[in-house]
Amino acid sequence: MAAAVMILLFVVLGIPILLVLWGIGIYNTLVQLRNQVENAWSQIDVQLKRRHDLIPNLVETAKGYMKHERETFEKITEARSRAMGAKNVAEAAKAESALSGALSQFLLVVENYPDLKANQNFLSLQEALTSTENKIAFARQAYNDQVLFYNNKIQMFPSNLVAGMFGFAKRDFFEIEQPAQREVPKVQF
């Protein structure tokens, strides 16, 4: 009789305890994933900031050599100041993609200036710029990977139960405006 009561007691107390432990496990995983998403996002910010710091130096070094590219420089400087003064995320995203476009155009026209390409100082700036551009792209890529993983987790059973209980919200992907890909090519007859 006493043994039966004990067993019943164990079951009645044990199942809720197991459930709570299981819930804690899932909760911790979700927190970890959310932190990874935040971390990936801040990584993008770090790289964008680094790019802003790099531009004045680069423009200053290249200007003397590239007299005919005033337009390119203006585009870069303007996009930079717009990106730095952006009030919200949408504005920032737009300005940053304009900046990316201007900088990649700049890296292409550099080809026409052999003197510039022989300048050691410029070469190291160019490497820094290339790398920062890559880091921005890779940070975005990593962020989107993390968001996909996190969103899947909070939508799938059974972790969606815990996610719903503690208000884990879905995150948005970081889409980039690529004017070249969005625009419909104009065909003239």
Binding site: Q47, E127, A128, S131, F138, A142, D145, Q146
Partner: peptide
């Protein structure tokens, strides 16, 4: 080798 360090950092970011 600054480029090597840049590339390793890029890949560190890409792989989180």
């Amino acid at each position: 080798h600054p480029q090597l360090f840049n590339i390793v950092e890029e890949m560190t970011i890409a792989a989180s």
